[in-house]
Design a protein around this nucleic acid. Structure first.
Lengths: 352, 352
DNA sequence: TAAAAAATGTAGAACGTTATACATAGACCG
DNA sequence: CGGTCTATGTATAACGTTCTACATTTTTTA
């Protein structure tokens, strides 16, 4: 080939036909090599693989999607600012990196219609499977989608799911850890800050953490002290609600926040209002986010190891893609990370 | 249809053939309606649209990808923890939401090979165009990809790009704003904390911010005070390097950080080392991230409006997908957000 | 050694949509 | 009214790969 022909070859996409002609075999033979299908000699396999490397051939995912697999995992995130999520993505990507699979992420911004539309788009794109992280959809809807595509839901407590899998941290236990940590430090008036808008849905991590808080308080004999303050989802009502909580004349001595996101907001509003942490109010969050660990924030938090959940979710999904039909419901244990926001009897300088 | 037949119809995917049969027209007519192509009567259009709605038909993106458009935008992020990125995504999704387009995100974790592999995957998936956010790839590689697919690069200063577009905040001006803010407050010994590993690449926002810092210092007559401290990319070397900077006997009185990420780390390490901010060291970051605005962090920062950049990027990409060939190089202006970390002569309580 | 079984490679249809050529009907003009 | 032009709808191939049927070759068995 002259230089001009070589440039032309580089610019036009190499297809399976190009490879077949280069290797001197049929298109179906190349396909068999690609799919690692039965009925290919080592000699022919070698010739085809050499041609693939020489020509830098990459299969078209869209063409594959018409009949076979795209080797693509869809990952649906509801709120990209949730500090848990980078860990989950790290876990998923770590498992996929050595393989032919790639994860493609859709962000639905806590909007149900966009959440549904993104799932549909991923199905229309013939992705091989989906991981839904803290989905807002009811179980019946997810189940309907799961008839069309393998699904694993993370941060979604539906142990009765029959055609999709769930992977969770034990959120009841996590909340109980927080309550126990308060009680061990002598606190009795312990409230919980929760996220509103979804009353009664036990599948949601928020509800599970409420249940855990409530049961731990009752177990400890403080049923009369149970107090759950519900925060709206969207700003600025969210910050206003936390501010109102802090202003209560009957403000408790300790508060468990459903998430570091709101716990950090609460810490900052408390600082503005000259409420001392932990002297006037003791705080434990949830997620063990990077922000919680900053010395200037110094927030105690429940760790749910997003990375491990991501690894577990992708492994579970790959096994479902491989053909497993039996539903799995997997649960990791949380742990308590103590920091300055929940130290007992600390002075202001210790908190800083 | 009996109930059994109805259930069966629900479960099988509706294709364009189903719609054509339902509407009593040809497959090609339905395709023309879908593509809004010339040569369709209003009567036929009405019939087809009714059938589409009745049957809840959604086209297959993989089939469309073989010949037409998938109505999918690929968004490549190098580091999902960069606080700038949720804003960019919000901007992009906001523009796409009312349309048939959807954004799918790939996360490359600052790994060049994964970055390349994800771009290739997006091309193999026949996405209609790509937005690369702070890509690490050299310009020639991006240009080669841009021969295959429309590309807009955000946070990538290559004004000579001929076959792809760039959308940036003016990073030199942003750094100059920070230097000027210090000088207005009387500071002369002003250092810069930058990110290492990519010496000399002017396309990188880091290098642009260095240039802006250096020129602003020279313009102000403080060329002899120019001091750039380079931080490694990966932990824990990154934190160690910032700690070493803080420990310098000749530590400056003011420091401009290339990004809020490292500025916040610096603030926290300073707190641990009992270096008072802003009395002992004045700090300005870059990105105006949500963490910077927390009262307990209170970091002055250069705002580059990620959301506006996202909007501009997606609008630019859509115009390129529509056929524009002329390259665009668009630049937004930054602004300075003053907070406690750079207040002049403030007392510790003011900083808090 | 002949028959049976297993392995190999190919031909061709399928997958779901788009794009184009063109036959035909309808509208317009002289 | 006949010829020309325009609009409409359809037939069909293309896109790039997978899957299956089956002809042929090779290997195994009795």
């Amino acid at each position: 080939m002259s230089e001009t022909d070589e440039n032309k070859a580089v610019r036009e996409r190499v297809t399976i036909r190009t490879v077949a002609a280069h290797a001197g075999v049929s298109v179906a033979a190349v396909s068999k090599v690609l799919r690692n299908a039965y009925g290919v000699s080592e000699a022919l396999r070698g010739r085809v693989e050499t041609s693939i490397d020489t020509l830098n051939y990459r299969p078209s995912r869209t063409a594959r999607g018409l009949r076979g697999s795209t080797f693509t995992i869809g990952l649906l995130l509801v709120d990209i600012r949730n500090p848990f999520l980078p860990e989950v993505i790290d876990g998923v990507n770590g498992v996929l990196a050595p393989s032919n699979y790639r994860a493609m992420i859709g962000v639905s911004e806590a909007k149900i219609q966009l959440e549904t539309s993104l799932i549909e788009s991923m199905i229309d794109y013939k992705m091989d499977g989906l991981i839904l992280v803290a989905p807002r959809l009811p179980s019946e809807i997810i189940s309907r989608f799961a008839e069309q595509i393998p699904i694993v839901a993370v941060g979604y407590h539906d142990p009765t799911a029959e055609n999709f899998d769930t992977v969770n941290c034990d959120d009841q236990q996590g909340a109980a850890l927080a309550v126990q940590a308060f009680i061990e430090r002598g606190y009795r008036r312990i409230s919980m800050l929760t996220l509103g808008s979804r009353e009664g849905h036990r599948v949601s991590v928020v509800r599970q953490r409420e249940i855990g808080y409530r049961e731990a308080m009752e177990t400890a004999g403080f049923a009369a002290e149970v107090d759950i303050h519900s925060v709206p989802v969207f700003s600025p009502d969210r910050e206003d609600s936390i501010r109102a909580f802090l202003r209560r004349p009957d403000r408790p001595e300790a508060v468990f926040c459903w998430s570091d996101l709101d716990a950090v907001t609460l810490l900052n509003l408390a600082a503005e209002m000259e409420i001392r942490i932990p002297e006037d109010l003791t705080v434990i969050g949830y997620d063990n986010s990077p922000v919680a660990a900053l010395s200037l924030i110094n927030l105690s938090s429940i760790d749910q190891s997003g990375r491990a959940l991501g690894v577990l979710a992708i492994e579970t999904l790959l096994s479902r893609i491989d053909g497993r039909k039996q539903p799995l419901s997997l649960t990791n244990a949380p742990s308590f990370i103590a920091r300055g926001s929940s130290l007992n009897g600390a002075t202001p300088s210790n908190y800083r």
